[in-house]
Amino acid sequence: MTLTMGGAHRPGATRQSGAADTSGAAARAVDVWKVYGSGEAEVAALRGVSVGLERGRYTAIMGPSGSGKSTLMHCLAGLDSVTRGEVYVGDTLITGLGDRGLTDLRRDKVGFIFQQFNLLPTLTAEENILLPLSIAGRKPDRQWYDTVIDTVGLRDRLRHRPTQLSGGQQQRVACARALVSRPDVIFADEPTGNLDSRSGAEVLGFLRNSVRQFGQTIVMVTHDANAASYADRVIFLADGQIVDELREPTAEAVLDTMKNLDTMAAVA
């Protein structure tokens, strides 16, 4: 069961209680459990998480370290299997899919942006961007491709190799790669974790744009309240459970909620 915490109302933040209505979501988890190890060493990284990620929305996942953010994201993205529960990407039930099915799903329906090492050093920026499409043997939609390139502002860097790009530029290439195949959902795990604040802001702004302008669905794990404030919705995880959620968050609201979670953890 999803456990939702009540709490103080904050200005500028819409609060929603109870289980999310998950139908028509770009991806959703239904009572997902993830248990690592067994016996003494057993760790439950997710304990009955149900969440729907709305289409065309920018969702951030926050929570203390070790709360299960990455695990949730991996399970939603078909990178990891769940111990119990069900995960859907679009309308596809992915729990129980084999490696081949999951791989193809990731290739066709999911985009990724990792914290670092997003790019293949042997390929140019352009080749990196087109990689998921070439793996699938699909032709890029030229117009869409041009739009993406212009949005990330990389047109003059397309022939460069990753080592010739700055960290911010590399992350923008990663964003373009995730976008260009028009996946159902893009997952980003601390995409700005390694960037200075200016490059970080560029990337975050770009991600928000792609949601606003192109209706892309994005899920982002982050530690940074400021980064989370770019999102339409923030989900808070603690101890493997969803404990709170904010809509249209501001950085202050996010910080408050985090503080709140910390004090609660301290009290507990």
Binding site: R100, T103, R107, F114, F117, N118, L119, L120, P121, P132
Partner: peptide, 16 residues
């Protein structure tokens, strides 16, 4: 290892 992980994550099949 990392590159291979990345490739697999973005959809390269085992056979590939």
């Amino acid at each position: 290892t990392r590159e291979l992980g990345l490739l697999r994550a973005i959809g390269l099949r085992r056979g590939q």
